[in-house]
Amino acid sequence: MAKGLPKSFKKALWVYHCNSGSCNGCDIEIIAALCPRYDVERFGIKLVGTPRHADVMLVTGPVSRQMVDKVKRVYDQMADPKAVICVGNCGNTGDVFYESYNLVGPINQILPVDVHVIGCPPRPEAIINAVAKAWVKLETLEGG
């Protein structure tokens, strides 16, 4: 992470947050990361309201049956190069909902996930670390 970081700073990442059926636990931690205590906006990381402006997509939740096509659509609307971060256990492994009839996840069966963040919910520090890792990946994609 440290190696690619200085270069990555040339571009501030805009993040789109997509809830695919999450319990809100990860979602409030994402907002917490944006708020004064953790304040990622000082790095230029910003939550945007539409996927068309975003470089990184944060997906939370185990992807319920009704949300599959919506999640895919959000991903398609993002411009290349893009990265996907899966936040929280339920998107990564199903967590306590692993045997539910209404789930289609884990997310990596639906979207190409670049960074997995484990935790139920992960701490804001872990989410910030994941976005920093996505920077490196985007740099590689750009050939920078």
Binding site: T93, G94, Y98, E99, S100, Y101, L103, P106
Partner: peptide, 10 residues
Amino acid sequence: GLEKLYKNLH
């Protein structure tokens, strides 16, 4: 019931 739709990720 639901037995048909049962899915276990693990």
